[in-house]
Structures are given as C-alpha cells and as structure tokens.
Amino acid sequence: MNIAVLVKQVPDTTEIKIDKETGALIRKGIPTITNPDDLTGVELALQLKETYGGNIHAFTMGPSSAKNMLRELYARGIDEATLLSDKAFAGSDTWATSHILASALKKHAFDLVIAGRQAIDGDTAQVGPQVAEFLKIPHVSYVDRVIDYNDGMLKVKKNEEHRMLTLNLPTPALITVLDEAAKPRYMNMFDIFRRSHLPLNQLTCDDLDVSLADIGIKGSPTKVKKTFNKSATQKQPKQTLNPEQAARTILDFIEAKGGQS
C-alpha cells in the first residue's frame, strides 16, 4: 500500500497573533511543530505500512523552514519527503493550497492519501477533501479508525459525533483522520541518526502543472476582510429553559435581530 501523507508546519501555540493589516497569522519568532492531526496521519501511515507493506511519502507546502519538520518525519520512519516551496505559493488559501498539493500528488501513484482532520492554526478542515476533489478520488473525512484493507477496498470508521459510520472505500482514496486514529510514536534514536538527514525532494512552481492564476493570493477565492478576537460585550440575563423553549427563544432572538429562521 503506497501512502501519501499531507502535513503542515504550524505555530506551537494556542495564542495565535494576527497581523492587523494583512489579517494573516504572524509566524515569525514562534516555534513550530507538525500539526498534531497530521502527525496522527503519519503514525497511521506507519502502522498501515507495517501491516500491508509499501512506502510512505510526505508532502508539505511551506517555507524552507518546513524542512526541519520533514527531517523529523524521516526520523519517525517515512520513506520519502517532498517540500513544495515557492514565492508564488505565498498567500494561498485552502483552495489554492489544495490545487498545489494535488498537482504534486498527481506525479505519483498512491493507494491512499492521508491528511489530518484540520490544522490548529486555521481550523478549516478543507484541504484534505479539496485535494481529493482535485485528484478526482473518493474521500472520507473524520476517520477515527482504519479497520482493514482488502482487495483494494479500505474499510474505515467515520466519527460524525452523534453517530459512527463504517464505510468501504475503493482505493485510490483520501481520508482525513481524527486524533483517535493513532497515537504518534516517539522518534527512535536509531532513526534520528540514520534517517533524519536523508535527502528531501524540493519542488517549485515550475515543477508542477499549475497556472499562476490558480495559486497564491491571486488564485485564492478567500479574501480575509478582517480578523478580530470576539469579545462578549453585552450581558444577557441567564434563563433556565427546557430544550423546546430554548430553541424558541433563540429563534425569536434571531428574528428580532432581522435574521431568518
């Protein structure tokens, strides 16, 4: 089973600072980590490889500092790593990012693409499913367990909070994983010294079949108008209601504010 994992380097903090002018995250000077859900994806890939064989290729789009993250993934046991880095990629939203990642993935044949559910810095959960759409392969998001892989069919458990679904998925396919899917192992000392300096592949815009109109700020349909911390300004009186009354009260409130219920 050949697996591609999508990973993102994110700031190691829950207190995100925003550039007031551009609305973008301030990443300078903040230590970075591999996005936790993506690390789960890497671990799941390692476990699948242990059971079904094959190799694991990690892809990330980001600045050159993301090389450190990829070296760490080598030390965790992946076989190949590719960094997609180009000034033309800067400012890409999830749509443009997915386009770039899918273009890189198209150059290889994978049975499975694994992405983390979402990144802790943006929380959109959009990149995984969008990549699947660009690749024209099926996907299942919110996977909390891979049950088995047989005859090209992947059986997974999808967690929809209020219900669990067991789904069969013809491969090649993409899944996005929840942190329940696997517990990341510790890097092994042997692998740190033997593998962390393995060569990384680096691709730029010229290596991919993408048009400049589809990537970067220009290719991003999402425009950040304003980013702000929402603070509670009005204190509403506390009411204790049964669910029916509560729903009614909320709807009345929305309607009173001019919204439609």
Partner: peptide
C-alpha cells in the same frame, strides 16, 4: 526508543549518536 544504544557506533549495534 533506542536510548540504551545512543552514543555507540552502528557497527556494534549502536544508534550512531
């Protein structure tokens, strides 16, 4: 984790640290 092998050469079974 391979900690017991840390500062030894690979040829003798170490981690190469």
């Amino acid at each position: 984790m391979g900690l017991f092998a840390l500062p030894f050469e690979e040829i003798e079974g170490g981690a190469g640290g």
